[in-house]
Design a protein around this nucleic acid. Structure first.
Lengths: 371, 371
DNA sequence: TGACATGTGTGTAACGATACACAAATCGGC
DNA sequence: GCCGATTTGTGTATCGTTACACACATGTCA
């Protein structure tokens, strides 16, 4: 047997009749309990209990009042990313904390990378949006704009009308790049995806004069132009790494760049194996995430390379595994940033603080102590 | 400057007028695009774009249609638990996958442990609920029942009218208990909370005859009665451990029981230090979670105890850290269970499969190989 | 005692959409 | 050339609630 009997919903009017009060009294009893006398409230609760009234219909309430009690969260990635990626999870933990504090539910909008994501956004019954890093040309951003609801974007892109929260990724990348590239001869970068196509592979910053390998994987030939990445975070970190290498007198065309399609140690390990072998084997790698750096570490171990002896290495985000691994990294509190985004979206943060650049700091560890 | 101008919402009727079609045509153009001609749909989309119509109002839609497009998830814990606890996160990853597949949003109901949680549940605009383990006497369960919406409870409690998904925790605990207690003389258990009070501390299964310590922490004196725990999972695992120890001819009163208030390695480490010292120091500990077991491992290391030489140890859930640590554990796929719960709640799983006992298996590793 | 604030109850009029039933136009088959 | 099926468009009647304005009783203060 299946199928629950479609128990007809009890209505507020029925409760009112049973309690011997007006409909508005019932409404107030739920929505603004202080507005009615204790006596009336008790009558209402009793009648509701007796009739099995589950409380005001949320749809009707939101239609009339214009509020839903939901904060919408949109990820630039597939929805499961929320629970699969440690950084996203930390960020959302901060968002969740603020939601709980304000009695707001947290609604994760089911984006999957398909064109219908736009509809999922406009269908979302929420009072405000928080957006986790996405590409400049993601149509989801325009859909969010179109709703006219308050929205805060974390990481990028920037848009008129949407608040924006991010660290100065370029400056941070320069700082960590300086450290990892110091004394290096063959620098490498392990990058997040460049754009929504999420192509992966290994190539050089720019084409070399000699007969260097053109590039592996699905990456197009012709090198990596940092400015062409449509993910703001990726773009600015690439620029920062480029700046740091330039400070040593180096040229971007000498830098080998591996691009991951996802933020996973497994893929990083495969790409790192390529970065670490052959005539252009890197002796310094700056990775955009600790997960990626840990993949590099595994590849290095397998190849018998010592860190920092044969290879210096840096990550990003100071995840739990970074300290035990002695990994130099850029620290920023994604939990705090999530909380800040949520508060801004809910309008509890002063307007002056709306467009925010958040703090970061460099943590130097063993992995960049070149002997 | 702050304060977005409260841009009045464009209505479907206005779009209809601008497009030169009826309101119903607009409604169909959004809700059932196949129902209208390509031509009409184009006119509607154009007019909508021109007027800045963001699509049908979700509240109005749900009021009329009775559907929200949201799956509600309720945690027995504070909302942030969703992103802080690795097991909960895995479970939710499975839920999220199914939501994405069906274009449903995932709404986390903001429970915090306060009495108003009940209101949060009845206010939730969702089509169905998935509930993560909570206590038998949690009023939230009754509130969910009262909504009359489909609901699936994972782990417990069981309730008429609500679907139920869980592993046979008692059998699994017996199996792993057999392994960890084999050859032991002073067994210990590291338990999840017993009830909503979440008291923590160390005591014995039952009061000993001699002058054994009465119990530390905030636990009441008098030992731990497995049957009295209101968390189904805790209750059944305690029973299973008791059964396993009884099979060796042992008595429950000999078993030292430490109870954690949360699922964290840190607290486990503190309690384990107590279990592992003094005249009743344990030589075998069954922990209800891998996190807890890792805490025990840390405490043992600090005390200079070898595992499995001086102490055998088991965990639960086969988390990522279990294999590297050589930890014997009970494996079950929480991700699959999350997916199954979501599918059942959404009604895409055959009715016959509604009340489900999920698979588990024992993974024996180094930590229980008593020399 | 008058003036005014406060507390409590009520009726009416939306909020913005979709289910449903019906009608007109079009199509295919024989 | 006729009939039934299909496609496409429309009007009406709600869905269940809350904002708002008003009415009345009671309390407070000069």
């Amino acid at each position: 047997m299946s199928g629950r009997t479609a128990r007809r919903r009890v209505t507020m009017a029925e409760v009112a009749r049973a309690a011997g009060v007006s409909v508005m009294t019932v409404s107030y009893a739920y929505g603004q309990p202080g507005r009615v006398s204790d006596e009336a409230r008790a009558k209402v609760r009793e009648a509701a209990e007796r009739l099995g009234y589950p409380g005001p219909h949320p749809g009707a309430r939101s239609l009339r009042s214009g509020r839903t009690g939901n904060l919408g969260v949109v990820l630039g990635e597939h929805l499961t990313y929320a629970f699969d990626d440690p950084q996203a999870t930390r960020f959302l933990s901060g968002v969740a904390q603020v939601c709980a504090d304000h009695g707001m539910a947290l609604t994760l909008v089911p984006v999957t990378g398909s064109p219908s994501d736009v509809d999922r956004v406009t269908e979302a019954a929420v009072d405000a949006f928080v957006v986790w890093t996405t590409a400049d040309d993601d149509p989801v951003i325009d859909a969010i704009s179109a709703t006219g609801l308050p929205a805060v974007v974390h990481g990028g892109p920037r848009r008129d009308g949407l608040s924006f929260v991010a660290a100065d990724d370029r400056a941070a990348a320069t700082a960590v790049g300086r450290e990892v590239f110091a004394g290096a001869r063959r620098p490498g970068v392990l990058s997040f995806p460049l754009d929504r196509a999420r192509l992966s592979g290994v190539t050089f910053g720019a084409p070399l004069d000699d007969a260097a390998p053109a590039g592996s994987g699905t990456l197009p030939p012709g090198g990596i132009d940092p400015d062409a990445s449509t993910f703001r975070v990726t773009r600015r970190r690439l620029r920062g790494y480029r700046d740091a290498w330039a400070e040593t007198g180096g040229d971007w065309s000498q830098v080998r760049v591996a691009v991951c399609s996802v933020n996973s140690a497994r893929e990083a390990e495969t790409l790192a194996a390529e970065l670490l072998t052959g005539p252009y084997a890197c002796d310094a790698i700056a990775a955009m995430g600790d997960e990626l750096a840990l993949g590099v570490l595994r590849a290095a171990t397998r190849l018998g390379l010592a860190v920092p002896g044969d290879l210096t290495l840096s990550g990003w985000d100071d995840s739990d595994a970074a300290a035990p691994a002695g990994l130099t990294t850029v620290a920023q509190s994604l939990r705090d940033q999530g909380a800040r985004c949520a508060r801004t979206a809910l309008g509890v943060l002063a307007p002056a603080e709306r467009d925010t650049e958040v703090a970061w700091h460099l943590i130097s560890r063993e992995s960049t102590r070149r002997p």
